[in-house]
Amino acid sequence: MSRIRARFCDPEGKRFGIPTFMWQGAPDGYATLRQLRALGLRPAGQPVAAQVMWRGVGGDRVAFLYRVELAKPKRTASAAQLRGVACALRARRTCSTCRIERPYFIPRSLGECLDCAQEG
């Protein structure tokens, strides 16, 4: 193991305060937020259990790890929430000048659809 990788190996958490593992060195049972999402889980308010550290382009990088057995299933949106999102997205596609719903989001810089912006 190189010195750089060994610097991040602290499974007891004496140096960094929480258990720290090197890149791809975390034991089973831990997952990042992205990995939890891929499994259909969420941290459910649990504290950070450990971290993974590695040397990156801009310096040392950190990814926080959560316990998989304490994670809970992701919550699903209600029908009313889904309707609200659909309504908001429809409003972003509707031109304020000609009131036509376009297949693209209206650019905020123009404030109207591309056809109305070219005419005016």
Rank of each mutant, 00 (worst) to 15 (best):
M22H: 14
R7Y: 07
A63D: 02
T32H: 03
E69G: 02
Q35Y: 03
R37F: 08
A44E: 13
L39W: 03
R55D: 11
P43N: 05
R93L: 04
C9D: 14
M22L: 09
I106G: 09
L65C: 05
P11N: 06
A79N: 11
G40V: 04
A77W: 12
R15P: 00
A6D: 12
A38S: 14
L82E: 09
R92L: 02
P11D: 09
R5G: 01
R67G: 00
R93F: 10
A49H: 12
R83T: 12
R102W: 04
A77G: 04
A91R: 14
S2M: 03
R61V: 01
C116I: 08
R37Y: 12
P47G: 07
K14E: 02
A44F: 05
V57A: 12
A49F: 05
L39N: 02
R3H: 02
A44W: 04
E12I: 00
E112A: 05
I100K: 15
A80Y: 05
V52H: 00
G58Q: 10
G111N: 11
S109V: 10
A91S: 15
R92Y: 03
Y30F: 14
G40R: 09
R67E: 07
A79V: 10
Q81V: 04
R55C: 07
R93G: 04
R90T: 09
L114V: 15
E101N: 05
M22D: 13
G25S: 06
T97H: 11
A44I: 07
Y30N: 03
R5C: 03
M53V: 00
T97K: 15
V48I: 15
I100W: 10
V85W: 10
R61Y: 02
A6C: 05
Y66G: 01
R99A: 09
I18L: 13
C116W: 01
R42L: 07
L114T: 15
P73A: 04
L110N: 09
G17I: 11
G29E: 04
A63E: 01
G45S: 10
P11F: 10
R61A: 12
C113Q: 06
R93P: 02
Q24N: 14
L82K: 15
A79P: 08
A6W: 07
G13L: 06
R55Q: 13
F21W: 11
I4N: 03
I4V: 14
I4K: 14
T20D: 07
E12Q: 12
G111Q: 13
W23H: 11
R3K: 08
A88W: 11
F8P: 00
F16Q: 08
F8Q: 02
R90K: 14
R5H: 05
G84Q: 12
M22P: 10
C9A: 15
P19Y: 09
L110S: 10
L41W: 00
R99H: 13
G13K: 07
R75W: 07
S96P: 11
L39A: 13
I100V: 14
P107M: 07
